[in-house]
Amino acid sequence: MNVITDHLSEFGHGLLLTVELTLLSLAGALVAGTAVAAMRVSPVRVLRAAGMAYVEVLQNIPLLVWLVIAVFGLPEIGVIAGLFTTSVVVIVLYQGAYTAEAIRSGINAVPSGQGEAARALGLTFTQSLRLVVLPQALRTVVQPLGNIAIMTLMNTALAAAVGVVELTAAANRVNLAEAQPIWIFVTAGLGYMALSGLLGLATGTLERKWAILR
């Protein structure tokens, strides 16, 4: 057990960075996903096509490939950003595609009469989406969004591959010094489990709080 207690500060820093990566990515993915889902149900053909292209391109290339492309490609075109920032932006865009699809399924689950009633009252399409349809759509997809949040947490580990010292990379560094992979990575795994447990609890609480009476 000394391998763990001797390196608590490394594990702590890694865990903190994982939490930061996850929270920033979740917030960004929710914004990006909502915007893209709104585009995909818009009456404007160009917006629908752009939303669909976004989802197809982002979902059909692995996150690790995107991270490597961004870390090495962006400096080539003159965009200099830190590894952490680059990783957050890439994870946001990638998880945003999955989030958009979950939200779109929620939009499709809202009865069409809700949007019709809103428009019949004189609300514009954007107002009816923002004030009537989306609030109901988001409440129906809390559970799938919770799954995506856990997937986002797990995917932050890929940032280790491009040099961000989050929990997995921290564990790897400790292991390079101590050569006790089982204890060290089980510890990292327990850290991820604890975090995803918290996400699961939050999801369950929100789902009960926001349940819609129909």
Binding site: G113, L121, R139
Partner: peptide
């Protein structure tokens, strides 16, 4: 949207906004 605001519509399936109270349903628009 402006013209629709001047024409009220009542539906077979009511279509009240499920996530809002009755009062909020009336004040939204």
């Amino acid at each position: 949207a402006r013209l629709r605001a001047d024409v009220g519509m009542v539906f077979q399936s009511f279509n009240l906004f499920h996530h809002k109270t009755i009062l909020q349903n009336l004040t939204l628009a």
